[in-house]
Amino acid sequence: MDILTEVLASMRTGRPVSVRTTGRAPFGLKLPPVAGAGFHVVLSGTCWLVPLEDAAPQTALALGPGDVVFLRDGRGHILADHPSTPAETERASQFSPGSPLGTVNVGGEGALTDLLCGNYHLDQTRPHPLVKQLPEIIHLRAEPFRHPELASAVQLLRAELEQPRPGAAGIVPALIDSLLLYILRAWLERHPAEQARGWAAALADTSIAPALAAIHDKPGSPWTVESLAVRAGLSRAAFARRFNDLVGEPPMAYLTRWRMTTAARLLRESESPLSAVAARTGYGSEYAFAKAFKRAHGQPPGGYRRQMRPAGPEGAGSDTAADAQLIVPG
């Protein structure tokens, strides 16, 4: 069980929306907050990222070729050739037939900066603790041999965007999907101190990791602290204490969290009846399941499904060009 992959998949509510942004100095583009996580990849040139909440020159990040920025909560920000350049409001992206992403052109006639911008649709109403423990902004500079897999993904994206060939419509979205995991992996490898505590440590802990894998693999099983402690090879008290220290909540609280996360994903992505969703998440009746789901998500499961899967042929998670035009990059 790859828990990192499973956690991210559980939060996803649709395919990533991506836009190739071309800026010529002087340029400044204001990007509002998005419901998910934002990202930018600098394909060529240089620019600055200025958070809207701290729109002061000293808070700006200087970005160069190959740099990657991940915005955990999709916070609003400005992309500009210089922190002092006035920013214009966001604009709708344009889509060409068959293109896997839109395009935005902004600025004057000066130096060129080429970026891949976008956002991953994530359910931020109940963010997973693993994601909450990440910094609000992750900036990974392009350093030779530091993160070879991430660098390779960026190079592949650049090649596909600069010289589109048959298959690009399938390759580019797959690379953007992979980019999220490469970003998080690179950040964890770059900050070994973070791996000594919290979720990074839990995933590597020889006692807690097997218990987490069991919960994620079979959320509907009648787990107890005792049975999970057996998986961990610890006493009940030692397991509960270590689990709480690393994961940030008691084992049964996390089990309930993961069951509700799994249920929400099933409601979004499948046609399974509520009785089947209840059974797969460890509830003996629809009533008990509905009560727990409403307590966790603020609405009954049927209402949640209708909200997340609107009527229409595409349903929830649609990533058509028409839908994507409503979502500005970043």
Rank of each mutant, 00 (worst) to 15 (best):
L4A: 11
M11N: 06
V19F: 03
G23Y: 00
F27A: 07
K30Y: 01
V34H: 00
G38R: 03
F39S: 00
H40G: 03
S44A: 14
G45Y: 02
V50I: 15
P57Y: 08
Q58Y: 08
L61V: 07
A62W: 04
G74Y: 06
R75S: 15
H77R: 13
L79T: 05
A80H: 03
H82C: 05
S84F: 06
T85I: 13
T85L: 05
E90C: 10
E90L: 08
E90R: 07
R91K: 14
G98R: 03
G102K: 01
N105E: 15
N105S: 14
V106D: 01
G110F: 00
L115P: 01
L116V: 06
L116I: 05
G118K: 04
G118R: 04
N119D: 11
Y120P: 07
D123Q: 13
P127E: 12
H128A: 14
H128D: 15
L130M: 15
H139N: 12
H139Y: 05
R141Y: 00
A142G: 10
A142Y: 00
A142W: 02
R146P: 03
H147F: 07
P148I: 08
A153G: 08
E160T: 10
G170E: 14
I171P: 05
A174P: 04
A174Q: 13
D177K: 08
L180G: 06
L181Y: 10
I183F: 02
A193G: 09
A196S: 11
W199C: 04
L203V: 10
D205Q: 09
T206K: 12
T206A: 14
A214T: 09
A214Q: 09
I215H: 00
P222F: 07
L228Q: 06
V230L: 13
R231H: 15
R236G: 07
A240P: 04
A240Y: 02
R241N: 09
L246A: 07
G248S: 10
G248I: 03
P250N: 13
P250K: 09
L255R: 03
M260E: 03
T262P: 01
T262D: 08
L267G: 06
L274Q: 13
A276I: 13
A276P: 05
A276Q: 15
T281I: 09
E286W: 04
E286N: 15
Y287S: 14
Y287V: 14
F289E: 04
F289M: 09
A290L: 05
K291H: 10
A292Y: 02
A292D: 12
K294C: 11
A296P: 08
H297R: 12
Q299M: 15
Y304I: 03
R306F: 05
P310H: 11
P313A: 11
E314M: 10
G315I: 08
A316R: 10
S318C: 14
S318N: 12
Q325V: 15
P329H: 04
